[in-house]
């Protein structure tokens, strides 16, 4: 095993981690702030990638294309939000319905093709995996760090405003929120829109980074997003109390996830087994609080058994 091979792969792992970290912030908004598991993201990340790719190919400026991807992502969230609030469909099912519908929509956007190339040679892109080791301003790591810091800053501000606070309250306690005059349905829809806008934005960055948009690029996105959220929480819950730092922890969580993936691949894991491994890891971390509580409860009764909490 050649350690140089691993080191060489690290910059790419970090870049991917940063992109998926942005996506995971969308997941954090629904899963942690709104307290809803939104499965729209598997579709909306690909929608973001497809929209940006097609627009750039048609001569749009990259920033305009990113903005368009964000807006279209918000529309995806709007659909899920309406399914859930207006039509009363359970949140998870609403997300699955939108995700399924988006598969067809994404194929349409891509001109009935499964994928579309977006070469950095032909178009002015914001970032590309080609520059991942370049020591210039075009290095995607640098660009993505700027993006991440900007996004965290904007969200820190937003969730501190009256509207943002009412959205956090909606996630924390729907009954209390309504009793305090908060339109919870509106806030649920808004949160889903914001989250999917961010997810689609990450998709637009991912398509540029990898040089193509693909209908399947979002498969399992929710699980990667959850992995990032949970790894971030497990590693930094004790030190990061501030909201901005919690968001930062999500991005770092995604980076750790991709670095670990890189390491296990280097250790010889078959790429085809990656999703299986990811699902297992996320399942273990999701189960951890439950089992920890059980273990502690058991210890209360049995007393005297040693071991750490």
């Amino acid at each position: 095993m050649d350690i140089m091979k691993l080191l060489n792969a690290l910059p790419s792992a970090v870049s991917q981690g940063l992109i998926w970290g942005l996506m995971a912030i969308g997941v954090y908004i629904t899963f942690r702030i709104l307290d809803v598991s939104d499965l729209t993201v598997d579709g909306s990340i690909a929608t973001g990638g497809a929209v940006a790719a097609i627009l750039i190919i048609n001569g749009w400026n990259v920033y305009a294309a990113l903005l368009a991807a964000f807006v279209v992502g918000m529309l995806c969230g709007l659909v899920t939000g309406m399914f859930h609030t207006f039509f009363g469909i359970p949140a998870i099912l609403s997300g699955i319905l939108t995700q399924l519908a988006l598969y067809s929509v994404n194929l349409r956007i891509l001109g009935n093709k499964a994928n579309v190339a977006l070469s950095v040679n032909k178009f002015r892109l914001l970032l590309s995996s080609r520059n991942v080791r370049a020591l210039t301003l075009e290095n995607p790591i640098l660009i993505l760090v700027v993006f991440g810091v900007f996004l965290v800053g904007v969200l820190y501000w937003f969730f501190g405003t009256e509207l943002g606070c009412s959205m956090r309250a909606t996630g924390a306690n729907r009954n209390m929120s309504r009793a305090q005059g908060i339109n919870t349905d509106k806030n649920i829809v808004l949160s889903l829109m914001l989250a999917n806008g961010i997810v689609a934005l990450a998709g637009a960055l991912l398509a540029q980074y990898q040089g193509f948009a693909d209908v399947g690029m979002g498969r399992g996105a929710i699980v990667i997003g959850l992995a990032a959220v949970i790894i971030g929480e497990v590693m930094f819950a004790k030190v990061f109390r501030n909201f901005a730092l919690k968001l930062l922890a999500v991005i770092i969580g995604a980076m750790i996830y991709y670095i670990v993936i890189q390491v296990v691949l280097w250790l010889g894991l078959n790429t085809n087994d990656l999703k299986l491994l990811t699902a297992l890891v996320v399942a273990v971390f999701l189960a951890a609080p439950h089992w920890k509580a059980k273990y502690l409860a058991g210890r209360e009764q049995g007393k005297g058994r040693d071991g750490r909490a």
């Binding site: 937003f158 501190g160 405003t161 009256e162 509207l163 606070c165 009412s166 309250a169 929120s177 305090q180 005059g181 908060i182």
Partner: peptide
Amino acid sequence: LAMRRGEKRGLRW
């Protein structure tokens, strides 16, 4: 949150 009951919640802090 309670202080703003019945008011519009906008982008003020």
